[in-house]
Design a binder for these strands. Structure first.
Lengths: 340, 340
DNA sequence: ATCTAGTCTGTGCACGTTCACAGAAAATCA
DNA sequence: TGATTTTCTGTGAACGTGCACAGACTAGAT
């Protein structure tokens, strides 16, 4: 019943050496592209490798070199949000591209629950990877602590304020939120609210701060609704509450596009026109933004560049090169459409 | 400039043995939960582990055991589709859950281009994982060939017809497509077309076959539009072409929700009402389905179960247990809403 | 012919485990 | 008590590689 009982013994460096009639030292040299090996030997070895179907045993190599040429990307998201978050995918691909250029392998680890957390901590300690990139970490994340403890080169995407010494790559959430709110105000809005999600994360808190910056002394804390997730459902609930508090509202900043989409549905249901009665802006420039009617004005995040940059930083750390500065901020741009 | 020059030497099993005043053999036994170790030794060793902060060096362990307790999930998707495909995320999470239960680690590998392909093949050969799950493989995929060649336990999600001997887990695309098309016909439609994507993949081809089954002798090949991707844009283009060929069309089967969403926009643009003038059904039950106006009737895939089942199969293979049958089909259900 | 520098190759050791074996100590039985 | 089984422990060998070292061979300069 076994599927592959007789899987043959893998060829080792010794088999290659015997086949090529040289010593394993010489084989090792051509494997690692070192100089000082004669053309005759090199060719014989290359033929032998081909013939016996040799591939390096990475476990053995890792053991002696203490490195793996692999980098972990750790995503900490509850299920529903992981599926909806438009940025995760782009970050993943950007990271993969950059690592691929340096011949590093991306290993993507997902934290679903606490079991995963401790298993992943073990994995990192086990020496499976040379470094780690942590996406959307929460404050006081046990994984972050584990990484700090074992001194694994690591970088955050987004900046959890509880890990002051670990480098991070992110966008200027505060500045971007301020800019798009200011732009919304320029359209002549006078009573502007915010649906603010995930205030326990850096991104959420910063976006709220930016909103407050833009409004300055016109800021009214009662017009900020705190919702748990960056989801459409949160947008629906948040908007209902906001209208309850201020039926004469004429502007909304939603801290994600999904939230904005839910909010727009509520505005329409209650007979308000967009952008006539109420102007609305979002954040992310995801799929949602173009699906809205009218298309949503929003902040475009360079998610793939975020991934690339994070990869570059962590590769630097692996080589012992500290990044130029602890934090790297990537520029955002405003995608101005018809919703405000 | 170096970040962590003085990273301390990791504690080894010898350090623990010395601290606990036993031999490394005994330490190894408690590490692996073997019987025949006295309570006194066990406690001393556990204290010592705690004290010196010992963690197993997995490279060393892998080297001797020839196993890693890690499974690769290989995703082969061009960028745009990866970001849009609603199923990938759920499959990922389902797989992660199941592996987590058996204390295996999920390692997620993304194939962007050919460079990635060969690097990942090397990775698999290098013995980093004990098995592999391949999602949305194309026919004649080089990775599939590599896996077959090295005899790595593997399972496909979806069934690429070029690998007849490798087990797979999937849904009955053909049956589901037939059922939902039949249901569409029951609403009294007489001229029904299809926007068919990814015919080079198993899923695409099977959905078309199911559509044909349902129409039987009413099937008209000129009403099938072949589009490249499961994307909204493809839906827009496909629908335009379909209307050009048959302006009096009254039903559409779109082979994904994203395609349906694009198609619905075109139908509305051209002044057709849904479901009055034209009934439309999709496939996937993704975000798109509920965002449509009216909400889309579609086929719900148990994507997370697909992931779980694939994980179970591959774990079985790793233990030398062949699956009950080569292919496992998971049931789908129809989510019937207002679009038809 | 001798010395020196450069090129090439083989060998021993280390990396940190697991596993098989052998032997000691304790417990059970005759 | 001695013989046997059971429980416990230590030791040597292996896993497959990279690296440092030493030595051999070649070529050029004196």
């Amino acid at each position: 019943m076994a599927h592959n009982v007789d899987r043959p013994r893998r060829a080792t460096i010794f088999d290659v050496a015997a086949e090529a009639k040289v010593s394993r030292g010489t084989v090792s040299r051509v494997l690692n592209g070192e100089p000082y090996v004669s053309d005759a030997s090199r060719e014989a070895i290359e033929r032998a490798i081909e013939k016996v179907g040799y591939v390096r045993n990475m476990a053995a190599r890792n053991l002696v070199t203490q490195s793996t040429r692999a980098i972990a990307l750790i995503v900490h998201e509850p299920h529903s949000v992981f599926l909806e978050d438009p940025n995760i995918g782009a970050i993943l691909l950007g990271t993969n591209d950059r690592l691929s250029e340096s011949d590093y392998q991306l290993v993507c680890l997902i934290i679903g629950g606490d079991r995963d957390s401790s298993r992943i901590a073990q994995y990192l300690r086990g020496g499976f990877v040379d470094g780690a990139i942590i996406v959307s970490a929460r404050e006081h994340d046990p994984i972050s602590a584990a990484i700090a403890q074992i001194g694994l080169p690591a970088v955050f995407v987004g900046h959890p304020s509880t890990e002051p010494d670990t480098p991070y790559v992110g966008i200027d959430n505060r500045g971007a939120a301020r800019d798009i709110t200011a732009r919304l105000l320029q359209t002549g809005r006078t009573k502007v609210g915010m649906i603010a999600a995930a205030l326990d994360r850096d991104s959420g808190a910063e976006r709220l701060a930016g909103f407050r910056d833009a409004l300055a002394d016109r800021f009214d804390p009662s017009l900020v609704i705190d919702v748990p997730l960056y989801s459409r459902t949160s947008g629906v609930e948040g908007m209902r509450e906001l209208l309850r508090r201020a039926p004469d509202l004429d502007g909304v900043f939603a801290s994600s596009d999904a939230i904005a989409a839910g909010a727009m549905d509520v505005l329409r249901e209650t007979g308000r026109s967009i952008p006539g009665d109420v102007g609305i802006v979002g954040f992310d420039d995801s799929d949602w933004a173009l699906r809205c009617q009218p298309p949503l004005s929003t902040v475009r995040q360079p998610a793939d560049l975020l991934g690339r940059e994070a990869a570059s930083v962590v590769l630097g750390l692996v080589d012992g090169v500290a990044p130029a500065s602890l934090g790297t901020m990537l520029p955002t741009e405003i995608a101005w459409r018809d919703s405000a």
